[in-house]
Design a protein around this nucleic acid. Sequence first.
DNA 1: CGGATTTGACCGGCGC
DNA 2: GCGCCGGTCAAATCCG
Length: 167
Amino acid sequence: MDKQNHNINIPGDTPTSEYTVPETNFEVSDLFELDDWIDEDPAFVESGEPQNPGYAANEVFMSSGSSSVYHEGDSTTGGGSRREKKELNELEKVAFKTKSEIEILDDGFKWRKYGKKMVKNSPNPRNYYKCSVEGCSVKKRVERDREDPRYVVTTYEGIHNHQGPQL
DNA sequence: CGGATTTGACCGGCGC
DNA sequence: GCGCCGGTCAAATCCG
């Protein structure tokens, strides 16, 4: 499909065909294992974006909170009750705004796309990914910014049951 | 051959 | 009660 054609020219980065995945690229669960969503964690922006050779993202902004990303469809639809916070004892929600032309951001984990939906608020489709690792119920939601198509919003949901894809 | 990816349809929840 | 929206699953297909 298009995966073979991911040879997009990235300014400032060289999209080689090799996915150089060192060990731990994004320790989302580790950095966001807080009780609640963090408002702003500048520390993550610095340590959360190490030297990623196989990365095409120039800038990575982290946005979390019920007033940033979720305000979009939660203010009216699910605004009635935040049921997530209750049962989602171990469910973390983190939204990343990555400046990249490609949505195939490889974080080192294996994701299996299980759905694509078009949101009314965005002319762009929303992709749903799930961790391929058995026992891992981590879900990933990837969609382009409504106002900035060059930005990709990646929302992680849940924590990996395994330490990594290549432990 | 296996695994991954695709699109469509279905379902559940909430809103009015 | 119906409609709308978002989310998930399933089957089919294709690639490596």
